[in-house]
Amino acid sequence: MAYYRRVGNVPPKRHTQHRTDDGGLYYEELMGEEGFSSDSSLLYHREIPSAIVDSQVWEPPDTTTTPNHPLKPRHLKLHDLFDARGAADTDVVTGRRLVLGNGDVRISYVVAGKDSPLYRNALGDEVVYVESGAATVETVFGALEAGAGDYVIIPTSTTHRWLPHGGEPLRAYAIEANSHIAPPKRYLSRYGQLLEHAPYCERDLHGPDEPLLAEGTDVEVYVKHHAGGRIVGTRMVYPTHPFDVVGWDGCLYPYRFSIHDFEPITGRVHQPPPVHQVFEGHNFVVCNFVPRKVDYHPLAIPVPYYHSNVDSDEVMFYCGGDYSARKGSGIDQGSISVHPGGYSHGPQPGAYERSIGVQSVDELAVMVDTFRPLELGEGGLACEDPGYAWTWSGRGPGQ
Score class of each variant (00 low, 15 high):
90 T>W: 14
13 K>F: 15
126 E>A: 02
150 D>Q: 05
311 D>H: 13
387 G>E: 13
39 D>H: 15
231 I>S: 14
109 Y>T: 04
24 G>N: 01
113 G>Y: 12
307 H>F: 11
297 H>E: 06
91 D>S: 02
155 P>I: 00
83 D>Y: 02
56 Q>H: 15
131 E>T: 01
361 V>E: 14
219 V>G: 09
3 Y>L: 14
248 W>H: 13
116 S>E: 07
262 F>C: 03
336 I>T: 00
168 E>H: 14
54 D>S: 12
22 D>M: 12
265 I>F: 10
54 D>E: 07
216 G>F: 12
263 E>Y: 13
257 F>Y: 11
226 H>P: 13
342 G>Y: 09
389 A>T: 08
239 P>A: 14
395 R>G: 14
164 P>D: 10
179 S>Y: 06
345 H>R: 00
170 L>D: 06
277 Q>I: 02
14 R>H: 15
179 S>N: 03
236 M>E: 15
137 V>L: 09
189 S>Y: 09
325 A>H: 14
381 L>P: 00
275 V>L: 06
392 W>E: 08
93 V>E: 15
267 G>K: 00
265 I>Q: 10
255 Y>S: 06
121 N>F: 08
333 Q>K: 14
113 G>F: 10
229 G>F: 04
332 D>V: 10
4 Y>G: 03
6 R>T: 04
4 Y>L: 09
258 S>E: 11
233 G>R: 06
381 L>T: 07
287 C>S: 14
51 A>Y: 15
33 E>L: 02
326 R>G: 15
231 I>N: 14
188 L>M: 01
277 Q>T: 08
365 A>N: 12
95 G>C: 02
200 Y>R: 07
336 I>H: 00
171 R>Q: 07
35 G>R: 11
191 Y>M: 03
108 S>L: 11
276 H>W: 01
330 G>F: 08
90 T>L: 05
140 V>C: 13
392 W>D: 03
23 G>R: 03
158 T>G: 10
389 A>M: 13
269 V>R: 12
5 R>F: 08
156 T>P: 09
366 V>P: 07
140 V>D: 07
112 A>I: 00
45 H>P: 01
233 G>A: 00
287 C>P: 08
362 D>C: 08
29 E>F: 14
391 T>P: 15
157 S>H: 09
334 G>V: 01
156 T>I: 07
209 D>G: 13
189 S>P: 08
143 A>R: 08
116 S>L: 06
266 T>P: 05
47 E>Y: 15
318 Y>C: 04
304 P>V: 09
73 P>L: 11
296 Y>S: 06
72 K>V: 09
333 Q>L: 15
81 L>I: 03
93 V>P: 10
118 L>M: 03
25 L>M: 12
48 I>V: 12
106 R>A: 06
98 L>I: 03
218 D>E: 12
16 T>H: 07
58 W>H: 03
264 P>D: 09
325 A>V: 08
181 I>H: 00
371 F>D: 05
259 I>F: 04
320 G>Y: 02
214 A>K: 13
299 L>S: 13
247 G>W: 04
194 L>S: 04
176 E>Y: 12
286 V>R: 11
362 D>A: 11
204 D>M: 00
176 E>D: 11
358 V>P: 10
81 L>S: 04
180 H>I: 05
77 K>W: 13
112 A>E: 05
362 D>R: 12
65 T>G: 10
86 G>N: 11
181 I>D: 09
